[in-house]
């Protein structure tokens, strides 16, 4: 193949490795993991607020790791990676979100209330 004659190390996907960015993503990820953990352990806020913090941290880490580690940008080499990744986000959200919604209504409608709030099966 024609590419085999060239030096594979000159390929843009090899050349885009960047130590500084990798380390930056690493540090940010650790901070974003530790911060919500700290908040959760403290229990200073309501659980719903904390849930939002956790979701926000996960989203932020997705963006940081996606950009600095996987280099999901719109450059010519990476455009298809980014496009397919973005295509899959709604699919994942639909799978999890619609399932959760469906079962939330199903649980409220098909579980017998007295059994649902009992403190477990004691007998």
């Amino acid at each position: 193949m024609s590419t085999e004659c060239q030096d594979p190390l000159q390929h843009p996907q090899v050349q885009m490795a960047h130590g500084g960015q990798y380390i930056a993503a690493y540090v940010f990820s650790l901070i974003l993991s530790a911060l919500p953990l700290f908040l959760v352990q403290e229990h200073g806020y309501s659980d719903t607020h904390l849930l939002f913090v956790v979701i926000a941290a996960a989203a932020a880490m997705t963006i940081i790791q996606g950009y600095f580690w996987l280099r999901l940008d719109v450059s010519r080499t990476q455009a298809w990676f980014t496009a397919s990744f973005i295509l899959f986000i709604p699919l994942v959200v639909l799978t999890i979100g619609l399932t959760a919604w469906m079962f939330a209504t199903l649980y409220t409608r098909t579980m017998i209330p007295t059994l649902m709030h009992a403190p477990g099966f004691t007998h």
Partner: peptide
Amino acid sequence: KLFWFFQGFIWIYVFCFVDLTGALHV
């Protein structure tokens, strides 16, 4: 490289939505 980095993705979701929310009692 893609494989390793992808595991990072999955792990942060496990960390956030299993470990952290588990401690939340939501």
